[in-house]
Design a protein around this nucleic acid. Structure first.
Lengths: 209, 209
DNA sequence: TCCAAAAAGTTGCAATTGCAACAAAATATT
DNA sequence: AATATTTTGTTGCAATTGCAACTTTTTGGA
């Protein structure tokens, strides 16, 4: 939210909404959020909590994304478009929907903040690409050990520190690096035994290099 | 190239280059293309052929991207930024470099084609996200068989056909889905035996569903 | 504070995979 | 057309992993 309207005041934001095709929708807890149109949209969670769940052809369900207040989603940002995905509200949720085509077809460029908005959108999309590249870098590693180390290295470089505070549970980490949780747990034990890392809860300390 | 300057004529393109901070660089065959600045850039291959190669901490080298005439790359689009990456020209190569900050800091929005340019850039970045999502969908599958089937399904859906013409070699497919080539070859044999697919060279026919 | 639920750790075992080392086939190159 | 190079197919074997089943620990409500 903040990023999408970076350097745009509340006032200007309201104006922007009038230029663009926007909609505010409210969904009760545990509803399936469906886009009524087939158009591309950008959604912003104004309030609430949503899970994006994918069911594959074998019936396996996985949470592929979790969205909180301020998070941005949509046909162009996530894989919401694929038929196998559902967005389910886990709380009362209020969502702002912006029609993507109305962003791109908007011709009246005299309105200054329109450009700022587009720039912000561009920043968000490029940082999404970076995120995806990081995950791909991890997923292409062949062993669980190498996946973990790649994850650690990326985190450490980004934060400039050898101490990692996992932003989610180990269960979620296993999903993120796409390996079996118990097998990952085993590998973490080996890494500890061999003196590469130390852990205390979700705090991991890298002892190598 | 076409996409970045979609609906922008050659004339307007030239004008645009004068507004933005652009540079045309030429590299001989087998040179390492280095960005002299640390700034974010967008590059466009005007002529030639480039490979982006990553060397990880174990010394394994993998081609992570191949760029031809018209392709767009850059700090914001690929993982060129990471230290482990090199871009090596495989032919005489001419590259147009656009400073990313000059795109975003450009204030004079009176110039109509500037907006078209930004919109095109946005289209390119969002379609990159889609590409990455597809690959992640494949990479998160646990077995080689499931990875292959996911690849086939995505392709088939996109082309609306049960006949697949691999856009690259089986060796490259193995890299793309991040498995051992010979193990993939074995799995393809099983799929043939079991009557799920038929292959003739790089043409694969899906016999299921 | 107690209880239920979720998360995390452990381990045996079978299935899958990577690796290595080839041979055969297809492509490029001279 | 002959040769070199790359791609593809095959297979044995050891290493890695997923799966299942279970225990222990942690977390979050009532």
């Amino acid at each position: 939210m903040e990023r999408l309207f970076y350097q745009i005041s509340e006032n200007e934001k309201e104006k922007l909404f009038r230029f663009l095709e926007t909609n505010i929708l409210t969904f009760p807890k545990n509803t399936i959020m469906l886009s009524n149109t087939k158009d591309k949209i950008i959604g912003i969670i104004l309030k609430g909590y949503v899970q994006i769940i994918r069911t594959d052809y074998q019936g396996n369900r996985t949470i592929i994304e979790e969205l909180e207040e301020g998070d941005i989603f949509g046909t162009i940002l996530s894989s919401l478009d694929s038929d196998e995905c559902e967005a389910i509200t886990k709380e009362n949720t209020k969502v702002l929907i912006i029609d993507y085509n109305s962003i791109l077809s908007y011709q009246n460029t005299k309105y200054k903040y329109y450009n700022q908005f587009i720039k912000n959108l561009l920043e968000i999309t490029t940082s999404k690409i970076e995120e995806k590249n990081e995950r791909i870098e991890i997923l292409t590693k062949k062993t669980i050990r190498d996946k973990l180390l790649e994850y650690f290295n990326i985190y450490a470089k980004k934060h400039g520190s050898k101490i990692i505070y996992l932003p989610f549970s180990y269960t979620n980490l296993a999903d993120y690096i796409a390996v079996d949780r118990s097998a990952m747990s085993r590998e973490l034990s080996y890494l500890k035994e061999e003196g590469f890392i130390e852990t205390k809860g979700r705090k991991i300390t890298l002892l190598y290099k």
